[in-house]
Amino acid sequence: MTDHAPDEELLTRLRAADPASSLPPAGRERVAQLLEAAMSDTATRPHESRENGTHGRSPLTWLVAAAAVVLIAGAGVFGLVQRDHGPTPGAGPSVTQLRASRVSGMCVIPNTHVLRLQTVAFRGTLVTLTERAATFRATHWYAGGPTDEVTVQFVPGGLPETLQARSLAVGHDYLVAAGDGFVRGCGLTGPASSPKLLRLYDQAFG
């Protein structure tokens, strides 16, 4: 018996119990409907520039965005994905869900132009912190939102240095920027006690 035999046995047994094995294929019409629905989201179609992409959106677009969840860490980008963008009807405080992922690539020097390109930017007080997530109570929205709270899920593999769990403290204020739902490090996110960072936000959004 080889080392792979137990794997093969397990694989065979699992595959035999696949709950989707009897799922009939979808009709072409349904696929066409889904395609149409996805690509009719023209306000967020590919190739839009970040600069005009946010400001020109209608309230309807944001509602669509609220319904449509986002999330994914693209390989090599920082991240935070914004899913419930906007209030949740009748269910407590509204929450923007973000995500922090690993860092890869180079940073540009933080500047107002780059900061302005972020779709989410807020000042918030850290209210809860676990190994997996941090929740901020938003006190000021510079871009995106507004929601009452923002939850950042930590993805194993790294966080912006400025948002490392060990450097976060409940009760303290932070300035957080995110693009495409991905938290931006590179000097764009950090403690609000930093005069340099605060000035950057004021200059970018003031």
Partner: peptide
């Protein structure tokens, strides 16, 4: 439906083999 919508919005990030990305 939501997944396809998000994939469209993140079209520029779709890798050559998009399925694992789409599963994510």
């Amino acid at each position: 439906a939501e997944t396809l919508l998000v994939c469209w919005r993140r079209y520029d990030e779709l890798p050559p083999e998009p399925l694992p990305f789409a599963y994510g």
